[in-house]
Amino acid sequence: MKKRNILLGAAYAAFAIVGLIYTCSWTYTSTTGLNPSFWPNIMFTMLLLSAIAIIVFSVLGPDAEVSEDSRFHWKKSLPTIIWVGLYTYAFQRFGFLIPTMVFLCGEMFLFGEKRWKVLLLISILLPIILYFLFTKVFGIYLP
C-alpha cells in the first residue's frame, strides 16, 4: 500500500508540475479581471501540495497490505477495456446498429456466456429495440 501511495502521489505531483508550467506559459492577460490561468493554477497548486502530503505521510506512516479488491487483474479487464474502445470507435465510424450487435456478442462471450443461442438472440434483438426506442419513440438521433 505504501509503495502504491508513493507512486501515485509522485504521478500526481509530476502532473501538477507539468500543468503549472504549461498554464503559466499562457500569454493572454485580462484587462479587467483575473487571468484565465488563475483558477487552473490554484487547482494545480492544491493538487501538488496534496500529492506531496500523500508522499510524506506514506513515507512516515505505517504500511498496510494491499487488499484483494484493489489488486489489478489486467488479464481479465484489459480485453474488456480494449473491446469497449473498439466499440466506441466503430460506433463513431459505422453507426449504431451493427457495431452494437458485434460488441454485445463479443462482450458477453468475454464475460463467459457460451450458449450461442442466448448470445445471438440478445445481441440481435436488443440493438434493434434500442434503436427503435431512441429514434422513433424518444426522437433522439442515432447514427
Binding site: 469497449v84 460488441f103 454485445l104 462482450e107
Partner: peptide, 16 residues
Amino acid sequence: IPPKILFPIVMVMCVV
C-alpha cells in the same frame, strides 16, 4: 439477470 449478460448491456447503454 446474470452479470455476464447484464454488464455488457449496461456498457452499451453507457456508450449510447
